[in-house]
Design a protein around this nucleic acid. Structure first.
Lengths: 393, 393
DNA sequence: TTCGGTAATGGAAGCGGTTCCACCACGAAA
DNA sequence: TTTCGTGGTGGAACCGCTTCCATTACCGAA
């Protein structure tokens, strides 16, 4: 047996004494093939270990059925849930999905360039990732079927939530519980370019928070708003600052559940009981939120992926996608990190606690957890304050 | 301008008055093209909005540079970290990566069938997913370059950890703290087939636990080992059972960090303080573990993906991959959920607490959290016990 | 002037399928 | 017997590129 190179369809045809057309029909299960022929060809295929080339078939047929999804920070829970939703739909529709994890703007640009300059996939889904005007224009010119999820892209079908409304909902929830001093912990956005894209989710949620406060006739205290890079650790630091204020907030709204974890950690480090001494509201309702009983604004993460994928696949079928802008519902899920503010509060003791907390926090941030020596067993003194998952009844 | 169908390379050639060969050279940046020609062709390409077909190029060139990764349960943090590691490497090497999320054995089989029956990708990475003997044989016959991560596959390069050793490490850590009654909470495995693949990670970690107990000369109490389906909620239920025993454990080792979350939740529900009244050790060291101060066995998740991808790419370069079995290091990271057992313990009060806890748990499991009515704001009475992220100093 | 040698280029021959059209039997209808 | 379908089948043309070989133009060396 000459197995120098992989068997092709004509090898099979030759070996089974039929034409390539017939082999092709057998492979694709066309009905007009005599049973005996089919069986014979199938046997030869098996003997030769022949595997049809997807590539050649796609080229010849003119359709490859593959799409790309570009996401930032694949490891974030909210992103993964979206991605999973999209993958499920695309699989079901028979698409191959190539996942592009754009950790940095540079990688995002390189992915986008790769996708627009060459004809690699039938369509593209962009998730949670603002793209620059020129890039959008490039995609347009290439007329690549494109949908966006969790980003507003002019002229492109996009599935989003109303972040501003979400921020308002969260804040109104806290207001309705009686809170007057409500802090905000969110993302600091370094803009890449002067281009318009403007607001990120966190900024819009902050806007919603401001609207709600304004509507309630409350003065807005700038010092109650703290922004920093994404991540629980940073949120913890910001919260520590917030709680150390002369007049600390009685509640904190934060722009993601992950950041809420940091807020909770900070509260604990400062010795504040949640929700009795501090109410906390997150955003997203990732799986973890239910587990730890976090009050949060639920957005349909997985469903956003599902919708995005559905719309792309409609686009690829040549259907009209309307409306261009699809807004999914939000709702506050009250669990166990929010309640009425405690009636009284002694400023003095509060401050003392806060001071201690800050010192502890500073000790902590100097050494982070993950890069430790590689012995068999390491006692990690960092993260010295012990965290525990705690439920109160 | 006739834009009925997409421009091809010969359209460009015709429109710019050169041969297709020259256009091809321009596209691929070959050096032997006159500068003037290059510029002109480039201009025409731009005018025509021509995008070279990746498909056709790949077919012609005979290499497509794409791989598939098959993973189970994409949303689990450990899986995502592995995936992210692999993606980073594959991107850097210029591969397109199609992600196959196999939630069920059926989907796994369909992915595998799709990948083996047709020639779609250059190679495949399988993560954390046991496959059946016939399937492995099929892959072999098709001689698809394959590597495994977190699964042992005979004859296939695989990157794994020594789960048994990990179980032993965790248990020895608790033993060294003075614990004598150590519980285990892990996965119940319904075997799909009679095929050999045998042990899952959880089972092997359980084996390690048993070894350690045996080595310490401790009697093994079968009732201290509880197995159930994966997930924090189930782990919580199992832990509740464990803590309701007449003689409850003073420490629990559980086969993943996610399950450890459930263990912590159960402890809290039962009113047990961690680590004073119950020590808890997880496995994996996902990001969350550091945040909540969970003592755990660290395995290099992301790195496992990196290694798998590196090995696949070596395989695709035609290099030998040795050793076939690559075992990554483990280490216990002690944080704040493990300490010495408390000296004394009154059986009576313990039991009373336990009984109450079980009742509460049963109430809980009847109604799960996520399928609530869709009003603007929902107060969720399920998950009634409020959970809080808590750090003690 | 003749003759390599070289840089730039044109274009045919694949890559491995799908598809369409021509063709062949063969049985039923005329 | 002739004439049509009609189910099976063979194979050329084509999908859009890459690649290799042939060709041309031009230049310096002999």
């Amino acid at each position: 047996m000459r197995n120098s190179r992989r068997a092709t369809i004509s090898d099979v045809a030759a070996a089974s004494g039929v034409g390539v057309g017939t082999v092709s029909r057998v492979i694709n299960g066309a009905s007009n093939v005599r049973q005996a022929t089919r069986v014979h060809v199938l046997k030869v295929i098996d003997q030769l270990g022949y595997r049809p080339s997807h590539l050649a078939a796609a080229l010849s047929r003119g359709t490859q059925r593959s799409v790309a999804i570009v996401v930032p920070h694949l490891t974030r829970p909210s992103v993964v849930e979206r991605l999973a939703g999209a993958l499920a739909v695309l699989d079901a529709e028979g698409y191959d999905t190539v996942v592009c994890n754009a950790d940095s703007p540079a990688r995002r640009d390189s992915f986008l360039a790769r996708l627009t300059s060459k004809d690699r996939t039938d369509g593209v889904i962009i998730m949670s990732l603002p793209i620059s005007q020129p890039q959008l224009a490039a995609v347009r010119r290439a007329s690549i079927p494109l949908v966006a999820v969790d980003v507003t892209l002019r002229g492109v079908p996009h599935t989003v939530i109303d972040d501003t409304a979400g921020g308002r909902l969260a804040t109104e929830h806290l207001l309705s519980l009686g809170h007057k001093r409500i802090g905000f912990v969110g993302d600091l956005v370094r803009r890449m370019t002067k281009s318009t894209f403007g607001f990120t989710a966190s900024e819009r949620r902050l806007a919603g928070y401001r609207h709600a406060l304004a509507a309630a006739g409350l003065a807005q205290c700038q010092s109650l708003v703290r922004l920093g890079p994404y991540g629980a650790a940073n949120a913890e630091a910001l919260t520590t600052e917030l709680l150390a204020l002369p007049e600390p907030p009685t509640a904190i709204f934060t722009s993601s559940d992950t950041q809420a974890m940091g807020v909770l950690a900070a509260a604990d480090r400062m010795g504040l009981r949640v929700p009795d001494e501090l109410s906390v509201v997150g955003f997203d309702d990732i799986e973890l939120a239910a587990l730890i009983g976090l009050t949060t604004v639920r957005q349909p993460l997985e469903q956003s992926g599902v919708e995005g994928a559905r719309r792309l696949s409609a686009l690829l079928r040549g259907e009209q996608v309307t409306p261009l802008r699809q807004v999914l519902d939000l709702q506050v899920v009250q669990r166990n990190t929010s309640t009425h503010p405690r009636p009284a509060r002694q400023a003095g003791s509060g401050r003392a606690v806060a001071a201690e907390g800050i010192a502890a926090a500073e000790r902590h941030y100097r050494a982070d957890g993950r890069g430790m020596p590689r012995a068999g067993c390491v006692a990690s003194g960092h993260r010295a304050g012990l965290a525990q998952l705690r439920r109160r009844t």
